[in-house]
Write a protein that binds this DNA or RNA. Structure first.
Lengths: 227, 227
DNA sequence: CGATACTTTGACCGCCCTCAAGCATCGTGG
DNA sequence: CCACGATGCTTGAGGGCGGTCAAAGTATCG
């Protein structure tokens, strides 16, 4: 029995396989693992979508840009997530490493051949994608109907949940993103993000620490986020 | 050979079936068609997700609400679209009929049993869902990084495309939505939507007609939308 | 015709953006 | 070792876009 975290953090189960290592993962059987340093680009928006990427370790920023340079971060990928699953001929977004990352890159044909052979795999891939869609829908609410403070509070709580699926849950939330990245995620400017973070720290809801934030008052933060 | 428009407007092809009527659609084999008048609610956010709905005719507004009443429209469903495919126990959004609608309602178990029997169906369902995800990602860019004028212009063009997949393309764009609905879709207030629409009409980019809009200058509108 | 629902338009205000300056941190090379 | 540039963060001052509040206009339906 092999257990693997999928796209959304849900556990994929492959009966009859032994979990000696990631190499037992049926996906890993058709791709070697690779590494890249932080800030490198895995693939770019508009580039031919010949590959599917599966993140193994690290975090990846997913973003789309307008022609004039305005950028919108549409998500943050975590270990187990698949990128580039879409049935389009070009990538719809840019994937940039936030940390050093390890990932597997698959040839599309091989990938879908593998999925076709294993209906269970296909179902779980489908499930992962609908979960992604649900996340996207929640983010639309954030972008369209929340104010700056609610956006930042929601963001911190969500990122905390995302990390909790990888490592053990903690009050400490690593932020391998710049204020600019966060602003582009939340539809704000970097200055507004900085101001709100400072304000939350002044109110003792969080504490700013190197490369991250420590959550001091989870409940208050939850209320602010308007959950 | 049976051709059916899927979720995204792409044509699903079922070889060996005859297209005498919609009843040939394998999905229709397990559900009777139903109807509802405009403004009725097909299902509500948070309600137990026991059913999957497939829209046959009409348009449906998909929305999520915050506890204080702020609402965000996350999409507009058109004929062929599936609603409630998510693998969650509760619906993630409310579905409200914009027009009189016809739809099929499926029991989840029967639905997925049907899909499991037909891998081709599963693949096309997957493809439709990734397309939905792509649309959601584009909408995030709109909500986070576009100004009011760009939002309205993009909205009119997108709705035009959506109608084009149902009926024949036309400069006339039906708007079975109120200004409030449009505002909730674009992350604006109804007053701002009204003002922008009036401004576009004053500039002769569009003409306001009963229950809709006529696009006068498609190119200018496209530039405004920042495509 | 009156009631209801929706739209339009105006006046004003506030949240967030813009622009700018100063500070902190880090890696590099003299 | 420190000087330095590069990069990112913070904070302030001021302005604009879109929100809020209000009132009048329009359409539809009993």
């Amino acid at each position: 029995m092999l257990h693997v975290r999928d796209f959304t953090g849900a556990v994929l189960t492959f009966p009859g396989q032994h979990a000696r290592s990631w190499a037992c993962d049926p996906f890993d059987a058709i791709a070697r693992r690779r590494g890249k340093p932080a800030k490198s680009v895995l693939f770019e928006e508009g580039a031919p979508a010949d590959c599917i990427v599966r993140l193994v370790t690290g975090a990846v920023l997913l973003s789309k840009s307008l022609t004039d340079g305005r950028r919108q971060v549409i998500g943050i990928a975590m270990p187990g997530d698949f990128l580039g699953l879409f049935m389009a001929d070009a990538h719809g977004f840019t994937a940039t490493a936030l940390t050093t990352v390890e990932f597997c890159r698959f040839d599309r044909k091989q990938f879908f051949a593998l999925v076709d052979e294993n209906p269970r795999l296909g179902r779980q891939l489908f499930s992962a994608t609908t979960n992604q869609l649900t996340l996207a829908q929640e983010h639309m609410v954030l972008l369209g109907r929340r104010n700056a403070e609610e956006k930042v509070a929601s963001f911190l709580l969500r990122l905390r949940d995302q990390w909790a699926r990888v490592r053990t849950a903690s009050a400490r939330v690593d932020l391998p993103l710049t204020r600019q990245d966060i602003g582009d995620y939340l539809g704000l400017t970097l200055e507004t993000v900085s101001r709100v973070v400072s304000r939350l720290a002044r109110r003792k809801l969080i504490a700013v620490i190197p490369d991250g934030v420590r959550i001091l008052d989870l409940e208050a933060l939850g209320e602010l986020s308007g959950t």
